[in-house]
Design a protein around this nucleic acid. Structure first.
Lengths: 251, 251
DNA sequence: CGTACTCTTGACCATATTCAAGAGACGTGG
DNA sequence: CCACGTCTCTTGAATATGGTCAAGAGTACG
């Protein structure tokens, strides 16, 4: 019987980082690359469904998503859950825990994920030595804020159909921007319960709403995932113009 | 006939900044203070009701709120409005415009406000020369994100009464943390329309919900503002434990 | 082959929206 | 000083949107 491989490994040197090689992110200078390489502690392989960060705890680590995807969420005491946003390759997670004393949200893997692990207590050193990297972290935080603003507008003021259309279009665009799913394929795995908890709707009503989008041939929902049939129709239903596109950094 | 005073003035040197003197924020080093003083372009006095930043535009400035308060919001094409968060003394606004090419939300003054104006294109210089200040900006961004997370949970998953209780308790705590309103006095001006647009509810239903909180002697709503009668009851209704309290920086 | 998970649908109910109307406070101009 | 418009709050009634309950179908997996 084989022993299963360790969850945390150190396989990939930063200069062979698949994110850097992908061309979706800004290039590092050699010095930055060397520093990030020393800043990195290892890699974390998370199975689908596992919890990466837990609300109320204090994690000594920061992470950058290398592959796979997951979601951030909060819950009320009685179990009601709200998904706040999704984390995709290139996203930096755990910053809140560096700045506040404990995490105020949880993060869970949707698919199997590989994350790059950094030491939180060396974060300030990064700001001191490589201000451009510090600025990049601010950039990522401001972008996260911008996405949350749009989600809040959506949950607060859009109807069920508008919200659902917005969410699916949003995920499609985000996934496309980092080539998380090959163009034109299913965005998965994602259950209708996840969609419901993102939209602030019940599971039943979410199902009925998605069926209507299906009927309009805007999407095709299939087992734990969906395919976009007509992105323009979705955007038009949502009254959403799409993600601002700008060259983006990562850490 | 007198000419009205200019909207933008340069009166207060940073070492006499009322925020610094208030003791609610971390102290600057002398060098930081000198730099911030050169980074500052002037002051902006905004009348209640005026727009400070407008969605879709590109402002060359960043602001720190010196006094008064306002709110950030987004609107849909047909006019539906969602208030995203409130800006209080010490808050830094306009960062999104520095990072994305244009603003994706608007900011409006609730009361008369005084804002400290910074040049956006010198922001990176701040990161280079004073990494600690850069880190502080990240701190502020992460804190904003944390507030938005809680708002999203609220709008997505709390009932009308829970949401309203959360919002009023939240505003009370935030105002208290920077002594925006003397303890025990009215939090104002704020109309029920503002509350409705924050909670994602209609004006009528917001009114009925606030009346119930009134009847429970948790709050006292009076013309364009409210007074907290029982903060603990509000927090308990909302299932909210309050703001994390930590020594906070500002720029 | 049974159990768990996801999706689906119908019926009924709760919550929140819309429409409508009016009261009270305030400021402005005749 | 009064008339008028505006703004905010308030309330009731009718309606719509979404939630809850319940049950069943299809699939995957041990």
């Amino acid at each position: 019987m084989d022993t299963s491989p360790p969850k945390s490994t150190r396989n990939i040197p930063c200069d062979e980082c698949p994110l850097l090689c992908s061309g979706h992110f800004r290039a590092f200078s050699e010095a930055e690359l060397r520093f990030v390489n020393t800043f990195k502690r290892g890699e974390l392989a998370s199975d689908a469904g596992s919890t990466i960060l837990l609300e109320g705890t204090h994690s000594p680590h920061l992470y950058t998503v290398i592959s796979g995807w997951g979601f951030r969420y909060k819950t009320l005491e009685d179990g009601r859950r709200q998904i706040l946003n999704y984390v995709l390759p290139g996203d930096f997670i755990g910053l809140q825990g560096s700045v506040l004393s404990e995490m105020h949200h949880s993060v869970e893997a949707l698919s199997d994920m590989i994350l790059c692990v950094f030491e939180r207590n060396r974060l300030f050193e990064l700001y001191e030595k490589y201000p451009e990297l510090g600025f990049d972290i601010t950039w990522l935080a401001a972008r996260e804020e911008q996405m949350l603003d749009e989600h809040l507008l959506s949950v607060g003021r859009r109807s069920a159909a508008e919200r659902a259309a917005y969410l699916l279009a949003f995920l499609y665009e985000r996934a496309g921007a980092v080539a998380l799913f090959p163009r034109g394929t299913r965005i998965a795995p994602l259950t209708q319960q996840h969609v419901a908890d993102t939209l602030g709707l019940s599971l039943v009503h979410t199902n009925k709403t998605l069926r209507k989008l299906n009927a309009q041939k805007a999407i095709d929902w299939l087992d734990s995932g969906f395919e976009i049939k007509d992105i323009e129709v979705l955007k038009q239903i949502a009254g959403w113009t799409g993600l601002p596109d700008i060259a983006r950094p990562f850490i």
